[in-house]
Design a protein around this nucleic acid. Structure first.
Length: 256
RNA sequence: CGGCUAAUUU
């Protein structure tokens, strides 16, 4: 039991196929853990993240009692590798689809820029939650389809629209379309700003060549993570200010 | 029983 959780952590740490296979072998050598669905699901996930879809499929096919996690993990594996046709085949073959299944399929089409199909999946979803709504706004926002993003945002249930995640996605849409005033207005109206909200404003100013405003945000933000630092580092590098970039780099804390 | 899957920012 406790051992299972330790193997789970090991499997999540695998970042390449070699490491993944080693841990897989270790799990096999340790006993019958591969036969527990929990570990098998994590193996599907691990192989999917490492891009070995054949291995993911092989483990999946060996699972005795598939559950919704198993199926969603396999679907995610194909989507992550942009194997949309195969993902669709998996999706169509599933008998139990939950909101995660549907949202994953929607993201698959969004990933390859097929906004019509993504929207079609969203419209057919039997149930929606925060993640599915935010995904759709983000899809339009990233594509620069500001009006569609706004329409979806405005059509959200109030309890969804008032979340930081929804506002962050909408702010990204404004910023990507050059509407920094609108982004700032929404930002200022938020009562539950999180670090992502600050990063969106930071990146919005950078994208629109307002480096001074970006640096003001950077100084004012209550916390900075790797994304915040990388955004500033990249911004300085992109405009040739290598001394500033070097200085920022030297100020960066170490993570892990 | 829970623990494993989808989202918003670089």
């Amino acid at each position: 039991r406790k051992l299972e959780i330790q193997y789970a952590e090991l499997l999540r740490e695998c970042k390449d196929l070699d490491a993944g296979r080693r841990v897989h072998a270790q799990v096999v050598a340790a006993g019958g853990y591969c036969r527990t669905r929990f570990i098998a699901n994590l193996l599907v996930d691990m192989y999917g993240r490492c891009g070995s879809l054949d291995d993911a499929r092989r483990v999946f096919d060996g699972i005795q009692q598939l559950n919704v996690f198993s199926c969603n993990l396999l679907l995610s594996a194909y989507v992550r590798s942009r194997r949309i046709q195969e993902a669709k085949r998996v999706f169509d073959g599933l008998t139990h689809r939950d909101v995660v299944t549907w949202t994953t399929m929607m993201r698959a089409y969004a990933m390859v820029g097929d906004l019509q199909q993504a929207r079609g999946v969203f419209d057919r979803m039997p149930e929606r939650n925060l993640v599915s709504w935010v995904s759709l706004v983000a899809t339009y926002a990233q594509a620069g389809e500001l009006q569609s993003a706004k329409d979806v945002f405005d059509g959200m249930p109030e309890e969804v629209r008032s979340t930081a995640a929804a506002c962050n996605a909408m702010m990204t849409g404004y910023a990507k379309s050059g509407c920094l005033d609108e982004a700032k207005l929404l930002f200022d109206s938020m009562t539950d700003k999180d670090l992502v909200s600050w990063n969106v404003m930071l990146g919005g100013f950078v994208d629109n060549a307002c480096l001074d405003a970006a640096m003001q945000v950077f100084r004012w933000m209550p916390a900075r993570d790797l994304v915040s630092w990388n955004t500033v580092l990249q911004a300085y590098g992109d405009c040739g200010r290598f001394q500033d970039a070097k200085f920022i780099f030297s100020c960066m804390p170490a993570w892990d």
